[in-house]
């Protein structure tokens, strides 16, 4: 889906946990998430922490949209 959308000219950021799969499939901008069942907020942590993590990683994804890349890129996350 990432490829079909990007092929059509959309700037696509793939937020996913399985980075090697995303790389193999061919996503160009990738932002890691923390797991498969809860990509953006571990339910075993306080709501506050989940929010911080989600807010941070979505911020990275937004910045990725505005970033010029020349090859498949996995963007770094801090939390």
């Amino acid at each position: 889906m990432v490829k079909a959308l990007e092929k059509a000219g959309f700037n696509v950021v793939h937020m996913c946990n399985l980075i090697p799969v995303s790389m193999t499939v061919g996503a160009n901008r990738i932002v890691p998430t923390i797991s498969i069942p809860y990509p953006l907020g571990d339910p075993n942590t306080p709501k506050e922490e989940q929010w911080k993590l989600r807010y941070h990683r979505v911020g990275v994804a937004l910045d990725a949209i505005a970033t010029d890349v020349t090859e498949q890129t996995v963007f770094k996350v801090r939390i």
Partner: peptide
């Protein structure tokens, strides 16, 4: 199938002037 579904979404996205997508996978 994934390609087809994404392609079917495109006209709706274009219609509203979408230029960037955050696609989340599990």
């Amino acid at each position: 199938e994934a390609t087809r579904m994404a392609e079917e979404m495109i006209p709706y996205l274009r219609e509203d002037g979408v230029n960037a997508i955050i696609l989340g996978s599990t």
